[in-house]
Simulated assay, not measured.
Amino acid sequence: MTSPPIQWYPGHIAKAERALQEQLKKVDVVLEVRDARIPLATRHPDVAQWISGKERVLILNRVDMIPQSVQQDWNKWFRSQNEVPYFTNAHQGQGISGVAQAARQVGAKINQRRSDRGMLPRPVRAVVIGFPNVGKSALINRLLKKRVVESARRAGVTRQLKWVRISDELDLLDAPGVLPSRLSDQEAALKLAFCDDIGQAAYDNQRVAAALVDRIKAVYHLSPNLFEQEPLSDRYPLELEPRTGEGFVADLADIRYQGDKERSANQILNDFRKGILGAIPLELPPAIE
């Protein structure tokens, strides 16, 4: 089966990018949030250029949706790349204290530099950036310990840039999710669609669900020790083998939905996105892959 084309809207993205880049001139530190299931696919290719010279804290959210062994592998891999990842589950508050401490440490360094130049300390200005629906607003609410920005497990909730006072030491900018205006790697685009991290995009649910099943099969065959049993088998009365993803969607439709493949596809996608299928990583560190 050919990879389904994932399409989105460059005009809308370009406007959001311009607004974000203008605000980035005013910030001291960037909190970059990625999806722990697909930490490479949710790396925006332009972030390094945008934040050149600024401090950055790397956050891998939704750590509850990958096995602990995979978290450990990603931790080793990122550290081998001279990056320190902070793993969080923003909806439950896991790992938030570590992020807050990292932000405070960066702030202390910045204000020490100001003091060395004879300047008074001020609240550090930080921005939270990442793809749509990776959990940026939930992270801010946890840092604040109260709900101040709208948060939901769907893309496109944050519509505009908004400054929030975290404490006397930290001001935080909540930014809408920003996608690359062009993404030629359709495999990466598919992963964004699997996880609903792609915002206002157009794609065929049936083809994406079939590709998701194929991806789960590939990860299972690559590293079956990550799973207590064959993935999907608990939730659906079907085995992965010998079916293709397309066949799996069709057979599930026949068994449960009177042949309605759209309902079958939506069931698979929703179950995966909500974590009902369990902890399933869609990317493994390059050394493992």
Score class of each variant (00 low, 15 high):
Gln7Cys: 05
His12Asn: 03
Ile13Val: 15
Arg18Tyr: 10
Gln21Met: 13
Glu22Gly: 05
Arg34Ile: 03
Asp35Met: 06
Ala36Pro: 12
Ala48Lys: 13
Gly53Gln: 02
Val57Leu: 04
Val57Gly: 01
Arg62Cys: 09
Ile66Gly: 00
Gln68Phe: 00
Val70Cys: 05
Trp77Ser: 15
Arg79Leu: 05
Tyr86Ile: 01
Gln92Ala: 12
Gln92Leu: 13
Gly93Cys: 11
Gln94Val: 12
Gln101Thr: 10
Ala102Ser: 06
Ala103Ser: 08
Ala108Ile: 11
Lys109Arg: 13
Asn111Asp: 05
Ser115Gln: 14
Pro123His: 10
Val124Arg: 08
Arg125Ala: 08
Ala126Tyr: 13
Val127Tyr: 02
Ile129Phe: 00
Phe131His: 14
Gly135Phe: 05
Lys136Ile: 01
Lys136Ser: 02
Ile140Glu: 04
Arg142Gly: 13
Arg147Asp: 14
Glu150Arg: 15
Ala152Leu: 01
Val157Ile: 09
Thr158Asp: 03
Ile166Val: 13
Ser167Asn: 06
Glu169Trp: 04
Leu170Cys: 12
Leu173Trp: 02
Arg182Asp: 13
Phe194His: 12
Cys195Met: 09
Cys195Tyr: 10
Cys195Pro: 05
Ile198Gly: 00
Ala202Asp: 11
Gln206Asn: 09
Arg207Ser: 10
Leu212His: 09
Leu212Asp: 08
Val213Thr: 07
Arg215Asn: 10
Ile216Met: 08
Leu222Ala: 15
Ser223Glu: 13
Gln229Phe: 12
Asp234Met: 07
Glu239Gln: 14
Thr244Cys: 05
Thr244Gly: 07
Ala250Asp: 12
Ile255Pro: 03
Ser264Phe: 03
Gln267Arg: 12
Arg273Leu: 03
Gly278Lys: 09
Leu282His: 10
Leu282Gln: 04
Pro285Trp: 05
Ala287Phe: 14
Ile288Val: 14
